[in-house]
Simulated scan of single mutants.
Amino acid sequence: MSKLIIDRVNEAYYGALGTDFSKKTRERINWIVTHVLGSKVLDIGCSQGINAILLGREGKKVDGIDISHESVEYAKTELGKEHPSVQASVSFKVSNFMTDQDIDTNYDTILLTEVLEHISDPDSFLKKTVSHLKPGGRLIVTVPFGINDFIDHKRTYYYSLLAEQLGAHFKIESFEYLGRWTGVICTAVQENNQSFYTAENTKQLEQGFYWLERDYMQRIGTLAGQAAKNEKELKELEKVKKSSEKIEVLYEELNRQIAEKDEYIRQLQIETVEVLNREEEALRAALAYSNKIEDLNRKVTNLEHRYNVLRKSRFGRVQLKYWELKKKIAGRGKK
C-alpha cells in the first residue's frame, strides 16, 4: 500500500494539472464512486481523499487510510472545507493497512484504487482485504493499464496477472478499461470464477489496447507537431543567430571606424591647439611690434611738434640756425 510520493489526484480532479488529465481523472473517479455499494466504505490508500469526500457528500460513512502523512494532512485540510455533515461522515488517518490492528471490519465496499501496483505481496494483501469485507461485500480496484514506470510501481498490469491475483480471493464481476487505467469490480464470495479468457473479455481487452494505442498515437502526433514546431523555431533562431553574428561583425567594424575617427579628431584637436598657440604668439608679437610703431609715431609726432614750436619762436629759429651751421661744419671736417 506504500505511496512514498504524494499522489496529486485531488488537484487532477479539479483541473490543476491540465484539462485533458482532469477529464480522464474525473471519468475514473466517477466510475469508482458510482460502483460503491452500501453505506460503510473503507478507502485503502485514500491519497488526497477525493473518493472519500465525494462519497461523504452522499451520506456514506467512509474511513480513509494512507501510509503517507502528507497525503492524509492534505485530505484532512480538504475535508475541513466541507459541510459539517460531510465532516461527520468521513475520517482520515495515517495507517499501514497490513499492520494496523484497529481497522474496522464488515465494510460494504472497499476501495483499492491505484494501490495494488505498489504492493510487493499482493496475495497477502488481498487476503487481508477479504477479512475486512462483509460476506458479499464489494471490492473496487483500479490499476494503471500497461507500462507505467513510476518509481514505486512493483509490476505492470494488463489482464491475466490482475485477473489471477484477484480471482484467487474474489469473484470477478467485471473488467473495465478506463483509458490508461483498468477498473475491476469484485465480490467477496466463495465461488469459482468463470474462465478469464472468454470472448467478451478478450474483446474488451482488445478495445482497451485500442484506446491506449489511440491515446499514445495522439500524444505522439502532438509531440511530433511540437517537435516540428521546435525545429522550425530552432531554424529561425539559427537565422537570428547568423544575423546577430553579422550584426556583431558590423558593430565591431563600426566601433573600429568610430575609434579611428575619434583618434583623427583627437589629432586635429592637438594640431588646432598648436596652430592657435602659434597664432597667439604671432599675434602677441605683432601687437608688441604695433605698440612699438605707435610709440615711435608718438615720438615722431612729439618731435615734429617740438620742431614746429621751435620754428615759430625767435629763440627756436636761432637754435635751428645754429644746428644747421653746426651740421655744415661737421660735414666739412669729414672732407
Rank of each mutant, 00 (worst) to 15 (best):
S2M: 12
L4C: 08
I5G: 09
I6C: 11
V9F: 07
G15W: 07
A16H: 09
R28I: 11
R28M: 10
I29L: 10
W31Y: 04
I32P: 01
V33Q: 02
L42G: 00
D43M: 01
G49M: 06
A52W: 06
R57I: 07
E58K: 15
K60M: 01
K61E: 13
V62A: 04
D63A: 13
V72F: 06
V72P: 05
Y74N: 13
A75Q: 01
K76F: 02
K76Y: 05
E78L: 15
L79D: 01
E82V: 02
V86F: 08
Q87H: 01
K93I: 01
K93A: 02
V94G: 05
N96H: 04
N96K: 07
M98F: 10
T99Q: 06
D100M: 03
Q101L: 09
D104T: 03
Y107Q: 00
T113N: 10
V115L: 05
H118Q: 04
I119R: 07
P122Q: 04
K127A: 15
K127P: 03
S131Q: 15
S131Y: 09
H132C: 05
H132Q: 04
I140A: 00
V143E: 03
F150W: 12
K154Y: 00
R155F: 01
Y157E: 07
Y157A: 00
L161Y: 09
A163H: 09
L166F: 05
G167D: 02
A168S: 08
A168V: 01
F170K: 00
K171V: 06
K171C: 09
I172N: 01
F175L: 03
L178V: 03
R180T: 12
G183K: 04
V184N: 08
V189C: 06
E191H: 03
S195F: 12
Y197S: 13
T198H: 02
T202Y: 12
K203G: 09
Q204F: 07
L205A: 02
Q207V: 10
G208N: 04
F209D: 00
Y210L: 08
W211P: 04
E213D: 08
D215K: 14
Y216W: 12
R219Y: 11
A224E: 15
Q226D: 12
K229F: 02
N230V: 12
N230D: 14
E231W: 14
K232R: 12
K232P: 06
E236T: 05
E236N: 11
K239L: 12
K242G: 08
K242S: 13
K242M: 10
E245R: 09
E245Q: 15
K246N: 11
L250D: 14
R256S: 13
I258F: 09
K261P: 03
D262W: 04
D262K: 14
I265R: 13
I270M: 11
A282I: 11
A282P: 03
Y289L: 15
Y289H: 14
K292C: 08
L296P: 02
L296N: 06
N297W: 06
V300Q: 13
V300L: 12
N302K: 10
L303T: 10
R306W: 08
Y307V: 15
V318F: 12
V318D: 04
Q319D: 11
K321C: 06
W323F: 15
E324Q: 13
L325W: 09
K326Y: 13
K327D: 14
K327I: 09
G333I: 14
G333T: 05
K334G: 08
